[in-house]
């Protein structure tokens, strides 16, 4: 695979952009013309070469610039990277999982050489060539989780398993859809999902938790989640909400195609071997509405999903103010034709 890594920004002048290839492989999240919560979990197996599902951890044209944006966030606010003391081993588990998978999926960019505990890691796109001792924190410039996260797209949370529950006890969270690691760290599965409307009553979280407690090593699972963001801003954190919330008031039917982005999270869940923790990657993909409607099926379907979305959900996803403009824009691309089942373009 030959990819040119984009030079682009996710703040300020927002030069983020998707190539034609990136648009075609965008993980559109709606298999039908309506949306409601469900436990939409499936095995995280490889399929459709070239899609975001081909490799266990997708690396795309935004890799280098996303990692640079993460460094900016961590510099401004170190609380976005936290690990409770008992999660250090899980951090090493995660480092191993990523290094082994990335070097297998993308040998042209990543190399891992293991000589007992002496590991040699090469990351060519970022110009990193490090040798360290596995399980020895003093041989890395950061803790193991933060070290590998500074070379990874997407947010990662580490979940400890005890008392028949999952506890969010570590994470590096810089590209989040409006939730705070600093506030939620130490919470259990029900607690950190507390603010989500409707889903508790549907029993979604009880079923999901029961499923995840039995997650097995080597059998990762995935699901998609989504929201919308004004501009291609990765860091839509509650910490900075007072700075980015005002963007919502600038959206009009005329600029919605350019300003509004569908934000899709490819979430996967992996059992880790030594710590028995679960790692929860939340990988964010952004696409402007004007790029999205170049796939006619997606334009039609997104219009219908947003039009019929329950108000509580629209409010929780922060869409209340922008939805009228978005609907007016998208309605031009919905001729009422039937759409095919499934998420992929026709």
């Amino acid at each position: 695979m030959t990819i040119e890594f984009n030079t682009e920004t996710f703040r300020g002048d927002f030069t983020y952009h998707n190539s034609a290839e990136a648009i075609a492989r965008f993980p559109f999240p709606f298999p039908e013309d309506k949306y409601m919560y469900s436990v939409n979990i499936e095995p995280h197996v490889s399929f459709r070469p070239g899609s975001v599902y081909e490799h266990p951890f997708d690396v795309d044209e935004h890799y280098v610039s996303e990692v640079a944006d993460r460094a900016l966030v961590l510099n401004e606010d170190p609380l976005r990277s936290q690990s409770l003391p008992h999660m250090n081993l899980a951090g090493w588990d995660l480092l191993e999982l990523l290094m082994t998978n990335l070097s297998e999926s993308y040998p042209q960019w990543f190399e891992l050489h293991q000589d007992g505990d002496r590991w040699h890691w090469i990351n060519r796109p970022l110009g990193i060539d490090d040798t360290f001792t596995f399980l020895d924190n003093t041989t890395l410039p950061y803790g193991p989780m933060e070290y590998i996260m500074r070379q990874t797209q997407g947010d990662y949370a580490l979940l400890d398993q005890r008392d028949d529950n999952l506890w969010m006890d570590a994470g590096v969270i810089t590209t989040q859809a409006d939730w705070s690691l600093d506030f939620d760290i130490g919470m259990n599965f029900m607690e950190w999902h507390g603010p989500v409307p409707l889903a508790h009553e549907l029993g979604v979280f009880e079923r999901a938790l029961k499923f995840l407690l039995n997650l097995r090593q080597g059998q990762p699972v995935r699901r998609l989640n989504w929201t919308m963001t004004v501009h291609p801003r990765l860091d839509t954190s509650p910490e900075n909400y007072a700075k980015w919330g005002v963007d919502r008031a600038t959206v009009t039917p005329e600029n919605a195609g350019e300003y509004m982005y569908l934000r899709v999270e490819l979430q996967s869940l992996w059992r880790l071997p030594r710590s028995n923790a679960i790692v929860f990657p939340i990988r964010c993909y952004l696409i402007s509405l004007q790029d999205l409607v170049t796939i006619p099926k997606w334009g039609r379907r997104l219009h219908r999903v947003l039009r019929d979305l329950p108000d509580e959900l629209a409010d929780y996803k922060g869409l209340t103010m922008t939805r009228p403009s978005v609907l007016q824009y998208l309605s031009q691309f919905d001729d009422g034709a039937q759409t095919s089942a499934g998420t992929f373009p026709d």
Binding site: G194, P195, Y241, V246, R248, M321
Partner: peptide
């Protein structure tokens, strides 16, 4: 003042109420 409580901080979460229109 949200109905979201952190045991670790011992507090509820407060989020700017007028960020969209200061």
């Amino acid at each position: 003042v949200r109905d979201h409580y952190s045991r670790r901080i011992g507090a509820f979460q407060g989020v700017c109420v007028d960020a969209e229109m200061p």
